[in-house]
Amino acid sequence: MTIWIAIVAVGLVTFLLRASFIVFADPHRFPHLFRQALAFVPPSVLPAIVAPGLLVRGDTIDASFGNPRWIAGLVAIAVAARTRSTLATVLAGMAALWLLQWLMG
């Protein structure tokens, strides 16, 4: 039951964020500082998701060469910077991960 409440509530907030200005509000009445802060949301949220995804194994931080994920992540970042392609980034990152896992046995 709690899961269903969470599902509906998450749906509701994502809709309200999308609808905020399109459906309800006047976009010109928007504090300047808030607008500036919003511009930094994507470059902040995404690294906060990616860094633990690359560096955490199980419950511990592993930045050693025994952890193939952050190395494969660097390969993916380089490919993303060059190609701007989601598919190329995912393929390069997975290829690097599988290769490293195979090399490390």
Binding site: R69, G73, A76, A80
Partner: peptide, 10 residues
């Protein structure tokens, strides 16, 4: 994680 990398870089 990789799809987030692809969103993050640009």
């Amino acid at each position: 994680v990789l799809t987030f990398v692809a969103l993050m870089v640009p």
